Simulated assay, not measured.
Amino acid sequence: MPEALSVPLVDFVTHLASEKRHSPRTCEHYLRDLQRLGAWLTAMNIDQWSKVTSHDVRRYVASLSKSGLSGQSIARHLSSMRRFYRFLHREGRTKDNPALDIRAPKSGRRLPKVADVDQLNQLLDVNPDDPLEARDLAMFELMYSSGLRLSELAGLNQDAVDLVSGEVRVLGKGSKERLLPVGAKAAAAIRRWLKCRVRFAPDSEPAMFVSQRGSRLSRRSIQARLARWGRAQGADQRLHPHMLRHSFASHMLESSGDLRAVQELLGHADIATTQVYTHLDFQHLARVYDQSHPRARRRSGASTPDSSDRGSAGQ
């Protein structure tokens, strides 16, 4: 990538980190999206950000769509571009924002996968055989109990968990802190793990969940351990951390019907993000209705206008 393209990217990421105080992970996402755009511009012989037109952006969006990216992913790329060009305009490096009026192609809503209560009971009602299994069970119980994100679980410190009051303090997106309840099963699993943790980690290590070497367990390791756990317990689908968070949200909403409360527990800034779980709840109700109501049963192979909305949830 030419220097005229790469240097402004470095300046932009520095601006996000120092002035906007975005997390390293957020900065990485912006940089990755814009580096992909920069590589495409280089291939198109465009060597200045100020030379990019709205027509170029439309061609780039078409190339992203052709490569298989969903409308949601393309919308994220466009959002990165718009923010980057606002920065360039503020710095006097460009006169306009070529991505301003460009929209991503629409794609069907992909609903998150969830496990039902019986599946989760089978997954979590286990007596661990060794310290690492005790650690894994504590992690997965806590994630399902409190609806934690993977990054929140990996970044959790011991002093953030109060087992007496049954609370955990997490640092979410945008460095926003929230206090969450910890269920009895999760608290018991954490107590069991803490008795084992002293074998691995020195007193100076703050992390709640550590590896055999005593260092903080990485996000990738947590993902791998959950997938392994699912295989060992005979799960009928590949397990990943967000499935536990999605299951927490869906089960809470099914039981309470309180969308605002679930939004607070999940740490969503916008309630529209939480509303995806109302679709999951409706799918469940619709399936029960179709299977139970004598006037709703359908002949085999029959189709209805809304049948596509009642399929299995996507990831």
Score class of each variant (00 low, 15 high):
residue 95 K to Q: 08
residue 2 P to E: 12
residue 166 G to W: 06
residue 61 V to L: 09
residue 43 A to P: 02
residue 291 Q to D: 06
residue 268 H to V: 06
residue 145 S to M: 05
residue 221 S to F: 00
residue 280 L to K: 03
residue 57 V to H: 07
residue 272 A to Q: 14
residue 79 S to K: 10
residue 84 F to R: 09
residue 220 R to I: 15
residue 215 S to R: 03
residue 70 S to G: 03
residue 239 L to Q: 05
residue 166 G to M: 08
residue 168 V to M: 06
residue 296 A to Y: 05
residue 224 A to T: 01
residue 230 G to A: 04
residue 92 G to I: 07
residue 2 P to T: 06
residue 69 L to T: 05
residue 216 R to C: 00
residue 299 R to A: 07
residue 309 D to R: 14
residue 263 Q to D: 11
residue 208 M to F: 10
residue 160 A to K: 12
residue 78 L to T: 09
residue 128 P to F: 05
residue 122 Q to T: 00
residue 206 P to T: 00
residue 192 R to L: 02
residue 17 A to V: 04
residue 193 W to G: 09
residue 73 S to G: 08
residue 111 L to K: 13
residue 245 R to A: 09
residue 150 L to I: 08
residue 168 V to E: 03
residue 301 G to V: 03
residue 183 G to C: 08
residue 254 E to K: 15
residue 310 R to E: 15
residue 112 P to I: 15
residue 311 G to I: 10
residue 47 D to L: 01
residue 193 W to H: 04
residue 311 G to H: 12
residue 162 D to W: 09
residue 284 H to Q: 08
residue 265 L to V: 13
residue 15 H to W: 13
residue 252 M to H: 14
residue 164 V to L: 04
residue 130 D to L: 01
residue 82 R to Q: 07
residue 138 A to T: 04
residue 202 P to F: 08
residue 53 T to G: 12
residue 307 S to P: 08
residue 3 E to Q: 04
residue 148 L to E: 07
residue 298 R to A: 14
residue 65 S to L: 08
residue 166 G to E: 05
residue 9 L to G: 09
residue 199 R to C: 08
residue 50 S to C: 12
residue 67 S to M: 06
residue 299 R to T: 07
residue 274 T to E: 07
residue 135 R to S: 13
residue 203 D to W: 08
residue 92 G to P: 06
residue 30 Y to F: 15
residue 275 Q to M: 11
residue 108 G to A: 15
residue 95 K to H: 04
residue 253 L to Q: 05
residue 103 R to P: 05
residue 56 D to E: 14
residue 126 V to C: 10
residue 163 L to Y: 02
residue 294 P to R: 09
residue 53 T to S: 15
residue 96 D to T: 15
residue 55 H to Q: 10
residue 304 T to P: 09
residue 315 Q to A: 14
residue 273 T to A: 14
residue 231 R to Y: 02
residue 199 R to L: 15
residue 245 R to K: 06
residue 289 Y to W: 09
residue 202 P to H: 11
residue 250 S to L: 13
residue 84 F to C: 10
residue 274 T to C: 04
residue 82 R to G: 06
